[in-house]
C-alpha cells in the first residue's frame, strides 16, 4: 500500500486549514448560531418551552405598539435615502477618479463620517439643525429666513433631519465601494475606447458603467441591508416620534422589559435582510461574470 509510506504528519497537514478555521466556526456557532436559535425560542416559546403567539400579539396589538409605523418608516427611510446616496456617491467616485491637487486630504475628509458612530452622527446634526444651530443662524444672518426652521418635535421635519443625517453619514460607504470598483478598472480599457473613437459620454456609457455595475450592485445590497438596521440616528434625533424596527426592539428590551418582543423585532429585521439580499442576488448578476456560456 503506497499510503503507508506517507508520514502521519504529512497526512495530517492536509487538515491544517480546517484547524485554522475551526476556532472561527466554533465561535460563530456559539455567538451567532446559538443566540439565533435562542432568539427564536424567546420570541415564540414561553418559559416552559411551549409554543406561544403572545409576543406576536403584543408586537401587533400591545399597548402603544408602533409595529406597522416602524415597518413603514424603516422601509420609507430606505426608499428615500438609498437612491439619493447612490447617486451622490456615484458622482463623487467619478470625481475622485480624476487627478486634482489635494486629493488625498479631500478623500480622507469625505470618509470621515464612516469613523463615527450613528449616535454621534445624530448628535452632530442635532447641533447643526437645532433652533440655534448653525443652519438656522447662517440663514437668518444672511437674511434668507426671518424665523428659525424648527426640525425637532415635528414629525415631518424630524423625518427630513434623519434623511439629511443619513445622507451625510452613510453616503461614504457607498462611495468607497464604487470608488474601489472604479480603481480596479484598468486604464487601458478607457484608453482603448478613446482610441477607437468613443466620446467621453460613450466611454462612460459603454465601458465604465457596465464594468462598474457589480460594484454598484454590491453597494446597493450592503446599503439596503444596513438601512434596515437604522437606529442611532433616529433615536437621537426623533426618539419614537419616527419609529423604526431597531428602535422598537431597543424600546421593547430596555423600557418594556419584554425580551421576547425585542427578539421578534430583531428577527423581523434579519428576515427582511435575508429576503432582500436574496432578491438582489437573484435579479442582479453581471452576465459576463458567469462562466461557460
Amino acid at each position: 500500500m503506497p499510503n503507508e509510506e506517507i508520514p502521519t504528519s504529512v497526512k495530517l497537514s492536509k487538515y491544517t486549514p480546517y484547524f485554522l478555521i475551526l476556532p472561527t466556526l466554533a465561535y460563530m456557532v456559539f455567538f451567532i448560531g446559538y443566540p439565533l436559535v435562542q432568539g427564536i425560542m424567546l420570541a415564540f416559546f414561553d418559559e416552559k418551552g411551549r409554543f406561544t403567539l403572545e409576543n406576536v400579539n403584543y408586537l401587533l396589538y400591545g399597548p402603544g405598539s408602533l409595529f406597522w409605523d416602524a415597518l413603514k418608516y424603516t422601509i420609507l427611510l430606505a426608499a428615500v435615502i438609498i437612491p439619493i446616496q447612490v447617486s451622490i456617491a456615484f458622482g463623487l467616485a467619478l470625481l475622485f477618479n480624476l487627478r486634482f491637487p489635494g486629493k488625498n486630504a479631500s478623500l480622507y475628509t469625505v470618509i470621515l463620517p464612516l469613523t463615527i458612530s450613528d449616535v454621534a452622527a445624530g448628535l452632530i446634526w442635532y447641533v447643526m439643525l437645532g433652533q440655534y444651530g448653525f443652519f438656522n443662524k447662517i440663514l437668518m444672518n444672511l437674511g434668507i429666513i426671518s424665523h428659525p426652521i424648527i426640525f425637532f418635535r415635528i414629525k415631518d421635519m424630524e423625518f427630513i433631519a434623519i434623511v439629511i443625517t443619513e445622507i451625510w453619514r452613510a453616503t461614504a460607504i457607498v462611495f468607497i465601494i464604487i470608488y474601489a470598483g472604479l480603481q480596479m478598472i484598468s486604464h487601458e480599457y478607457y484608453e482603448a475606447a478613446e482610441v477607437f473613437g468613443a466620446t467621453t459620454w460613450q466611454r462612460f456609457r459603454y465601458i465604465v458603467f457596465p464594468l462598474l455595475l457589480p460594484s454598484l450592485q454590491a453597494a446597493l445590497i450592503i446599503r439596503t441591508l444596513f438601512a434596515f438596521q437604522i437606529f442611532g440616528v433616529v433615536w437621537t434625533l426623533a426618539g419614537r416620534d419616527i419609529p423604526v424596527l431597531a428602535g422598537e426592539a431597543y424600546y421593547a428590551q430596555t423600557e418594556l422589559l419584554r425580551p421576547g418582543v425585542a427578539s421578534l423585532y430583531a428577527l423581523i429585521i434579519a428576515g427582511l435582510s435575508i429576503a432582500v439580499g436574496a432578491l438582489y442576488i437573484k435579479f442582479f448578476k453581471a452576465k459576463y461574470l458567469e462562466a461557460g456560456m
Binding site: S186, E188, Y189, E191, A192, I207, P210, L211, L213, Y288
Partner: peptide
C-alpha cells in the same frame, strides 16, 4: 500591451 479587450 494588456490587450484591453473589454471583459463585459
Amino acid at each position: 500591451q494588456s490587450y484591453a479587450v473589454w471583459p463585459h
